[in-house]
Design a protein around this nucleic acid. Structure first.
Lengths: 221, 221
DNA sequence: TCTGGGATAGACAGATTGGTCTATCTCCAA
DNA sequence: TTGGAGATAGACCAATCTGTCTATCCCAGA
């Protein structure tokens, strides 16, 4: 069987409001903010805490980011780019090995929820805490999720699904559900469950490449 | 075919920290808090705003609830009880009509996300904003989700699933995923997708009672 | 009418918040 | 060495936050 086509790079994220250049201070801010926001939430962490953690002065923060919301949006954009790159690489590597690219998404998911710094989905949290459509964090979160959906649809088309949008919709549900339940239950089992359910749905679509050997292995556990 | 057994009432929610008695002021607080927290988030809404909306004095709030967190937890407990009751009733009504109880959960979900006051899942938001395991809002959210899981497992057993825990896990993923995507996308299509995917998974389990006629209707849309 | 329980308006307290700004320092390249 | 860019500590600002409390009012039942 011919391997499904490799995915192209997802669409670019929205442009950052303030010009971005390589800057150790900016990177320190993004890193500290990411860590703190991820653990404790966005509104629960004041900028003074971010500053102390990053070792950066307040004016420097406001030089790089116009507001706290822009800092948050910048964190989300950066994280989103990293995840997109990681997913794309993972899918490409899986394809090169003759495995199922769509299930590569779920392999990435499982690794992500097992990571020690997993504290739930930064994007879901951003949209929850900044729910107004005009809020930058919500916009950045929605943009990223749309990118993920586009990647899923692309992979479904590449896999020859009869209705790629519909299948992508179902798989996306499983991904999001797993992120939420892994966070709530503090247990990566949700990601394992998601992969299994995804495999079943793919099988229903008659997408069998490389599935059976992995599904059999799961059964043996 | 014999209808699956009806579900018993889910386990009781955790006890409220302060004695609850019928009280118009208390109800006003819970109602106002629910509305405001649902729309804007928990930390984004100060208690003064809740008070103004409820038409209640601050001392009265602190008489009924020891802290803002307890107010939040009480809202979640109340909402959780309402949802559990609604789900149980929905499942019972569906069973009485000879329909598939498991899919009744998804019918409820679709109605919920279509409601004008749907602003995302209050429980996911609570756990996101109060992520520490000792935080009352997180505890209340996790308790509710565990109840939902237990109900799902019970229905799966009643439906004769070969592995009810596993099937319940998959269905739970779809439910949570739909809540998140309906919120992010501001589109109830996620709930429709979830129901369809659930129907497929049930079919895979050989649980067919009443499925085909509904699935065919969905196909015609 | 009187009393007790429930409720009120809002002052108070200390802390925190996001953002603005001054004066000064550091570093690097020309 | 000098100048410019980048960065600093931290004061300042107005607003907001959660929770505590006083003095007072209202209502229902005895």
């Amino acid at each position: 069987m011919v391997s499904p086509s490799l995915p192209e790079r997802p669409p670019s994220p929205p442009p950052a409001p303030i010009t971005r250049r390589a800057s150790p201070k900016r990177d320190a801010l993004l890193g500290a903010a990411r860590e703190l926001f991820s653990r404790q939430g966005y509104r629960a962490v004041g900028i003074d805490t971010v500053l102390a953690r990053a070792g950066v002065a307040k004016m420097t923060l406001y030089k790089h980011f116009g507001s706290k919301e822009e800092l948050i949006a910048a964190v989300l954009t950066q994280v989103g780019e990293e995840i997109s790159a990681a997913l794309t690489a993972r899918v490409a590597a899986t394809s090169a090995d003759g495995g199922p690219p769509l299930l590569a998404m779920f392999d990435w998911l499982e690794a992500a929820v097992r990571a020690p710094d997993f504290h739930g989905c930064l994007f879901i949290k951003a949209a929850s805490e900044y729910p107004d459509p005009g809020d930058l964090p919500r916009q950045a979160a929605v943009a990223f999720k749309q990118n993920c959906r586009a990647l899923l649809e692309q992979l479904c088309r590449g896999a020859g699904a009869a209705n790629p949008e519909q299948l992508a919709g179902a798989l996306h549900l499983l991904l999001e559900g797993a992120l939420v339940l892994a966070f709530l239950q503090r247990d990566p089992q949700a990601a394992v469950d998601a992969r299994r359910a995804a495999a079943l749905l793919l099988e229903d679509e008659g997408i069998r490449a490389g599935l059976l050997c992995r599904a059999s292995a799961a059964t043996l556990h």
